[in-house]
């Protein structure tokens, strides 16, 4: 209760002097448009997240941009197809990215294990199935170190369930009354324009998701970054 005549509360100061947050309670931020997909409103350290479906990698990149902030580091392992130009367009700081294109299968676990110890996010796309013991060990180490594992292949080759899977889907596109009703991409037509924005529905399921959560966003939006979807 404010006393009469008291100066207004300095919110920035309150944030600074608030009781400290323990590492275990610290959440990695996610874009505010996607907060509703996460039961805690952010990514708890040590989680593993799979991305699948349409726009899977753009989704991952948009989340990295927010989660890494200015100081976080990310390593991308075994996904030589990832286009970092897109990551930069979606806001990922390229001076915090380290890439290991295709580590040999026999040292794959060692490489990912070493990365988990130093990086905030480790994005993986295993070339083949991962053994159950290796998977459990890596997950345990990630929880211990507070690193987030991103499965760029939708955790297809991962033997255990991941904490959360985000699946992107676009509305079916079709011709209606002679004109193209693109539910997915905007800006492109019959030989003119260029791809500008995509309307993407994202569903979050998983053992830590609670109920199934979904949201619809523009990814990318007309400005190249994540944007809210407004029902026409």
């Amino acid at each position: 209760m404010a006393l009469p005549g008291a100066p207004p509360l300095d919110l920035a100061l309150i944030e600074q002097i608030a009781p400290l947050t323990l590492t275990g309670e610290r959440l990695l931020a996610v874009p505010s448009l996607l907060e509703s997909l996460f039961i805690w409103g952010g990514i708890p350290p040590g989680w593993s997240i799979g991305v699948a479906g349409n726009g899977a990698w753009s989704m991952a990149m948009a989340i990295w941009a927010e989660a890494l902030g200015a100081e976080g580091w990310i390593a991308i392992v075994g996904a030589p197809d990832v286009n970092l130009v897109t990551a930069a367009e979606l806001g990922v700081r390229l001076d915090r990215v380290v890439v290991i294109e295709t580590p040999p299968t026999k040292v794959w676990t060692t490489v990912v294990g070493a990365l988990i110890e130093a990086f905030d996010i480790v994005a993986i796309a295993p070339g083949g199935p991962v053994g159950l013991r290796d998977a459990r060990r890596l997950s345990a180490r990630a929880r211990e170190q507070g690193a987030v594992l991103f499965h760029l292949d939708g955790a297809r080759s991962w033997p255990t369930a991941v904490d959360l899977t985000l699946t992107g889907s676009t509305q079916k596109a079709g011709w209606q009354g002679g004109s193209w009703q693109g539910g997915s991409w905007q800006g492109v037509g019959d030989g003119h324009g260029h791809l500008r924005a995509r309307c993407l529905r994202i569903d979050a399921v998983g053992r830590r998701a609670g109920r199934t959560r979904s949201t619809t966003v523009l990814l990318p939006g007309p400005d190249g970054v994540l944007a809210p979807f407004v029902e026409p």
Binding site: A88, L94, V97, V98, I100, V107, T110, V111, A118, F119
Partner: peptide, 19 residues
């Protein structure tokens, strides 16, 4: 960590992006 992985995979295997 990067130095350790370079020892394991060879110095070319670990890379960073530039525009």
């Amino acid at each position: 960590t990067v130095a350790r992985l370079q020892g394991l995979l060879g110095s070319e295997a670990v890379s960073v992006p530039e525009c």
